[in-house]
Design a protein around this nucleic acid. Structure first.
Length: 879
RNA sequence: GGGGCAUUGGCUCAGUUGGCUAGAGCGCUGCGUUCGCAUCGCAGAGGUCGCGGGUUCGAGUCCCGCAUGCUCCA
């Protein structure tokens, strides 16, 4: 059975049991501050369990893209070393929201595994929750009873809270779970040891494949548990493991899911993949580990980029960069590949997953480009790190830990490569010193990030929060549901949640609203509005006295909101214009808009030319002048919007019902939750102010609308007018070019004259030279002022006179300058030192200081009155 | 969000504790060598040392701020 069939059968099976099949949510977690990436099938459905949103159906099932880089048994550094850990993986899941419970969940999981997939029953074990006295939780008798219908008693194993009780967080839904484990050992091994002993014992061949969570309790803030009225089921089955179990391969990596990637690697590198593992095979190959790392990380990187998260130096983007770089490190060190490689593999992956996750194939050119650039950048970093490492001074064969850390921390050179090279050179690395520096760095960051989130004070326990800001900018009958204080760097922030609000929370690139809340006579400023798990949070300047006021008036800053709307609608018009002018490959990669400006990032591979920009700007302005009326479909089924041709974004999670914003059905139609003008005419005027690159394959356009655009143009005109006035020219550009030319010519002319003057002075001084003890001495105060010329003059004189001492005084501005040159021969013969002489003279006569080399020195000061004396005094130092 | 590092001709980089006339290689221009090209030789152009303050007699070099890039950590 192929992996495609296995996946499809899962979905078909649950569809036949009345489940609605939903597409995978994007792998990048948005809207959830506690999570960067979706790490389980359940994560995108959290709001349904918390009651913040209604699920599209009571029974749903899907395969979800997941990414795990940290966790108790899954450190990024371990991936590739064994056969069952991955960064990116698929999780199959079926859910019941207050619908079926243990009986059906258990029956169906057994049916699917044994009858559809035909896994041997005698290799399956199940676990149930054995209860916990301290928590006052009973043995999960119900699950055991259900299992007894299919599984003999001795294969139903009880486990405690750690393995078999699941909680979403410190509060909220939780409950016992029941896992299905499979014993994949050979018959011979099975004969020697009972599989029951190996369940939950970290044996690579006796593994959990399916977890069924039965949510039946709610954990309250005080830690107590209450029985939920509507009980739910949440299940998750690791797809890669399931494929391994069904296909009977020695590890996940030997299934057909990975074969095409290994085929490519074998062909490209000429190294055979042998499927060995450290710890399992005595003759294991590092090349095998490296190939698994590359193949695994490729999947993580490609799918995440396709979902809109680009490699960067911060946040989720940084995690992606780290994963990609780990892969590069492995192929660079162990597969002997010194050129970009993974970008060639991305299309293979896209083809493999074209039917399940089409978003990758749809954007493959873009993904390839980004991966290539990122690989190139890191290979450059490696090269320069190597050079730096080569030039380090190493004492007693121990590479200083701080130096190793500096290479890593400042120059991004991986510590394991440092170790590898150190070993080749016969050095050891001071690991303790490295570790200490790393811990210090972590401590610094943690300390900074420290913010204490106070508990919510709940005034009314209602979960129904409504946003009315599309239609109203003011409500006068709201009340506070809850509030809290958050300490950020010692400064308090106050958060307030209302039952109804006209305030738009930051999202979809649009800034949050500001405005005011009136608690009776008390007026509180709203500084910002943000969303957390579908909860609208008002950031206020302070908490009111009367926070329990029954009727709070909430008023959005209307003027600001209107400007934001202008920019948001203009962004839609711009998006459509870009696609018309540049082509359909233009995909939104991000946007930001507030009351001042708008920014729009999109996939495009070349610079947008000035002509194209002009065309785009013109098209948008044309649409503004057409004064198109907004068509808003506030809640229509997703399929209907798709049929209508609405633009959807990759990496965006859409619900069952969506909001569709149209400005002329033949021009712009997007799914969007933001705020818009009623007529495009309101935008007034659209002006692009900049275009540039922000990442590989991503361009950014910044533009202004309405008053801001007008002000911008007016400022440009004023500036132009003043330039024209100054130049008194019709063609300022040409006039400036001519001026620059002229200026350059004059500069050269002045320099030429100065040198001419200097050369006259030189001839004069040469004649004035005194002879003593077989060398020439020149002492003089000149009227030259350019220090460079004087320095040159001194050295030329010295050269012309053969063996000589040249001491020149000059005045630059108000300040005296002494330049002293002594021939090398005199320096070595008499031990003269120009620097020391200059310093002493400057201190004595000039109220200053000086210094330099034995043969050449300069000195200066603040008092020029005794300059001549100083120059003459040089003679006192000479033999 | 918090650290570290970097920013010097078109490109890649040197520039010791502040003081030799800001350099090197590649590239560019011209001339020569050559039937021509590559090569080689000679000559030359090209730099507000990221920006703004400060310390100093003197700052590419030290201090502060800003910008941009790289990098590590959260």
């Amino acid at each position: 059975m192929t992996s495609r069939q296995i996946r499809q059968q899962f979905l078909d099976f649950f569809a036949s049991k009345g489940h609605k099949i939903i597409p995978s949510a994007p792998i990048v977690a948005k809207n959830d501050p506690t999570l960067m990436f979706v790490n389980s099938g359940m994560a995108p459905l959290k709001d349904f369990f918390l009651g913040n949103q209604t699920p599209p159906a009571l029974r749903i099932a899907d395969t979800q893209k997941c990414l795990r880089v940290t966790g108790k048994h899954n450190d990024l550094e371990d991936v590739g070393r064994d056969g069952y850990h991955h960064t990116m993986f698929e999780m199959l899941g079926n859910w019941s929201f207050g619908d079926y419970f243990k009986r059906e969940a258990i029956a169906w999981s057994w049916e699917l595994l044994t009858e559809v997939y035909r896994l041997p029953k005698d290799r399956l074990y199940v676990t149930v929750f054995k209860g916990d006295a301290a928590e006052n939780l009973p043995f999960d008798e119900e699950a055991r009873t259900e299992w007894l219908k299919y599984v003999p008693e001795d294969r139903i194993l009880p486990f405690g809270k750690k393995e078999n009780f699941w909680e979403m967080g410190e509060q909220g839904p939780c409950g016992p779970c029941s896992e299905i484990h499979i014993d994949l050992r050979s018959d011979a091994e099975r004969a020697t040891r009972d599989g029951r002993e190996l369940v939950n014992a970290d044996d690579p061949n006796v593994i959990e494949i399916w977890n069924n969570v039965f949510m039946q309790f709610n954990r309250r803030a005080d830690g107590s548990l209450e029985e939920l009225p509507a009980k739910s089921v949440d299940t998750g089955m690791g797809f890669e493991r399931l494929c391994r179990a069904i296909q009977g391969t020695p590890s996940n990596y030997d299934t057909d899911l990975w074969r095409p990637l290994f085929d490519f690697l074998e062909k490209y590198t000429g190294i055979r993949y042998e499927g060995t593992y450290p710890g399992l095979h005595t003759d294991w190959k590092m090349t095998d580990v490296a190939m698994r790392v590359v193949a695994d990380h490729l999947r993580a990187v490609c799918f995440t980029i396709a979902d809109g998260e680009l490699p960067s130096n911060t946040g989720a983007g940084y995690v992606i960069r780290r994963i990609l770089r780990r892969a590069v490190r492995y192929y660079y060190s162990f597969l002997e590949q010194k050129e970009p490689l993974m970008y060639r593999m991305a299309p293979i992956l896209a083809e493999e997953f074209a039917d399940v996750f089409p978003e990758l194939k749809a954007q493959i050119d873009f993904v390839v480009r980004v991966v290539l650039e990122e690989e190139k950048a890191f290979l450059r970093t490696l090269e320069s790190g190597l050079r730096r490492l080569e030039s380090l001074e190493v004492h007693k064969g121990i590479l200083d830990g701080r130096q190793a850390f500096e290479l890593y921390d400042t120059f991004g050179f991986p510590i394991d490569l440092t170790r590898l090279i150190a070993r080749e050179k016969g050095w050891t690395v001071d690991e303790a010193g490295f570790e200490k520096a790393l811990q210090e760095q972590k401590e610094r960051s943690r300390k900074d990030a420290a913010k204490t989130v106070g508990d919510w004070t709940v005034l009314r326990d209602e979960s129904d929060v409504s946003f009315v800001g599309y239609d109203q900018l003011e409500v006068d009958d709201a009340y506070v549901l809850k509030y809290r204080t958050v300490q950020v760097k010692g400064k308090p922030q106050y958060h307030v949640v209302l039952n109804r609000t006209p305030f738009y929370p930051e999202g979809g690139g649009q800034v949050g609203d500001t405005g005011w809340l009136y608690f009776g006579d008390e007026k509180i400023q709203v500084l910002d509005t943000k969303k957390e798990n579908d909860l609208v949070i008002h950031y206020v300047e302070r908490l009111p006295q009367n926070i329990e006021a029954p009727a709070v008036r909430a008023q959005v800053n209307v003027h600001r909101r209107r400007l934001v709307e202008n920019n948001h609608s203009a962004t839609h018009l711009l998006h459509a214009a870009l696609r018309r002018v540049l082509g359909q490959h233009v995909q939104q990669k991000g946007s930001y808009l507030d009351d001042q400006t708008l920014r729009f990032d999109f996939a495009h591979f070349q610079k947008v030319t000035d002509e194209e920009l002009a065309q785009i700007e013109h098209l948008v302005n044309e649409k503004i002048r057409e004064n198109i009326a907004l068509e808003e479909a506030r809640s229509i089924p997703l399929e209907e919007a798709q049929k209508a041709g609405a633009m959807m974004l990759f990496g965006e999670k859409y619900g069952e019902r969506v909001r569709m914003i149209t400005f002329d059905p033949t021009y712009s139609r997007e799914l969007c939750g933001g705020c818009h003008v009623k007529q495009t005419g309101r935008i007034g005027f659209f002006k692009i102010v900049s275009e540039g690159a922000i990442a590989a394959g991503v361009r950014r356009v910044e533009a202004l609308t309405a008053d801001a655009a007008e002000r911008h143009v007016a400022a440009l005109e004023r500036e132009m007018a003043s330039i024209r006035a100054l130049l008194k020219a019709q063609e300022p550009a040409r006039a400036v070019a001519e001026l620059q030319e002229e200026n350059k010519r004059l500069h050269k002319e002045i320099e030429r004259l100065l040198w001419q003057q200097a050369s006259q002075v030189r001839q004069q001084l040469r004649q004035q030279a005194e002879q003593r003890n077989g060398f020439a001495v020149v002492t003089a105060v000149t009227t030259l002022s350019d220090t460079n010329i004087i320095k040159t003059l001194a050295s030329e004189l010295e050269r012309e006179l053969g063996t000589a001492v040249v001491a020149l005084g000059s005045i630059s501005g108000e300040k005296p300058l002494l330049t002293l040159r002594i021939s090398e021969a005199l320096v070595s013969k008499y031990g003269l030192h120009a620097g020391n002489i200059a310093r002493e003279l400057a201190q004595k006569y000039l109220k200053g200081g000086g210094g330099g080399q034995p043969v050449f020195a300069t000195a200066g000061g603040t008092d020029a009155s005794r300059l001549l004396e100083a120059v003459e005094a040089v003679k006192g130092y000479l033999p």
